[in-house]
Design a protein around this nucleic acid. Structure first.
Lengths: 144, 144
DNA sequence: CTGGCTGCAAAAACTTTGCACCTCA
DNA sequence: TGAGGTGCAAAGTTTTTGCAGCCAG
C-alpha cells in the first residue's frame, strides 16, 4: 500500500519539486480510491479551487506513471482510465452498456502470463487485461 | 478463417452497399495479414490510388468492427492497432523499445477468463490482453 | 430513382509544447 | 538565486460530423 509520505519521499529523491499543485493532485488521486480519468481531476481541481491547470495535471500524471505509481488500466473510446497502483495487481471487466468497472484478480492468469513471457524471452514491464462485455444488471435490462 | 466472399455476403445481408471503396479497404486489410493502423490504410490507399478518404476508412473500420471482422487489439501511445479476426484468438506481447509485436495464444488464460466472467454473471463480448515489456533482442542491446 | 455512401472541410476530443513568469529548495 | 515547474494559448494528433453531390441496387 503506497501512502503519501512514501510517494513524497520518492519524488524528493528523484529531484522533483514538491509544488502545491503536485501535492494537491496526489491528494486527489489517493482520494479517488479507484479508477479516474484526466477530466475527473480537472473537475475536482476546479471544484475545490485547487487551480492545477490541465497541462500540469497531464504532466504530473506522466511523472507518476513513469515512477510506477499510477497505471493506465483501461482504454475505452479513446479515453484512458488510470488507477493508483497501491493494491494487489488486478484486471478489469468493463460493461459496454453502463460503463461499470469490476476488478478481479486471478493468480493463475498472472503466472501463465509469466510463463508465456519466459517462453519468448520477453521481459514484462506491465500488462493490461480488459474484458469488455455486458454486466449482470444490464443483461436483465436487455431482456425487458 | 474469414474470406472475402463470406464477408461480402454478410455485408449484403446487413444491407450495406458494396462500394468500390469498401471493397478496396477489405482487400487491403486482408492483405495486411497482421496488425495495422488507420494510417497504414490511408497510406496504402494513396500509394495504390485507391482513393478511399480517411473518413471512409474510419467509417468502414467501424462497420467491420461492429460486425466482429476486425478487433482493436493494441492501444499504445494513443494509437489503435487493428487486426483481422480471422485466426484463432490470441493476445500480444508488445516491445516498448522497438515496437515489435509477438502474438501468443493460451487456452488456459482463455478458460480462466470465462470462469471469472461466470463468477460475476458478466457476459463477455471481447477482450484484450496486452503485455508490454522488452523483447529478447532489445534486452541484449540494453546490456551493451 | 433513392437511400445510403463518399469526400471535403470543419469541428471535436484529447494531448503536447513553447514561452514568459513563478516558486521551491 | 536558479533550475525546474506552472499557466496559458497555440498547435499537434486522432477521430467524428454536417452537408452537398454521387452511386449501388
Amino acid at each position: 500500500m503506497i501512502n503519501k509520505e512514501e510517494l513524497i519521499k520518492k519524488l524528493k529523491l528523484k529531484n522533483f519539486k514538491l509544488t502545491r499543485q503536485r501535492l494537491e493532485i496526489i491528494d486527489e488521486i489517493l482520494n479517488f480510491n479507484g479508477h479516474f480519468e484526466i477530466e475527473d481531476l480537472v473537475f475536482k481541481s476546479r471544484e475545490k479551487n485547487l487551480k492545477a491547470s490541465r497541462s500540469t495535471i497531464y504532466r504530473t500524471l506522466a511523472i507518476l506513471k513513469d515512477l510506477g505509481y499510477i497505471e493506465e488500466v483501461i482504454k475505452l473510446n479513446n479515453k484512458t482510465f488510470y488507477e493508483v497502483a497501491n493494491k494487489e495487481h488486478h484486471d478489469h471487466l468493463i460493461c459496454l452498456s453502463c460503463g461499470k468497472i469490476i476488478e478481479f484478480h486471478d493468480e493463475k492468469i498472472e503466472s501463465i502470463q509469466n510463463e508465456v513471457c519466459k517462453k519468448y524471452n520477453f521481459k514484462p514491464v506491465y500488462h493490461r487485461l480488459e474484458i469488455f462485455g455486458i454486466c449482470k444488471d444490464c443483461q436483465k435490462k436487455e431482456k425487458v
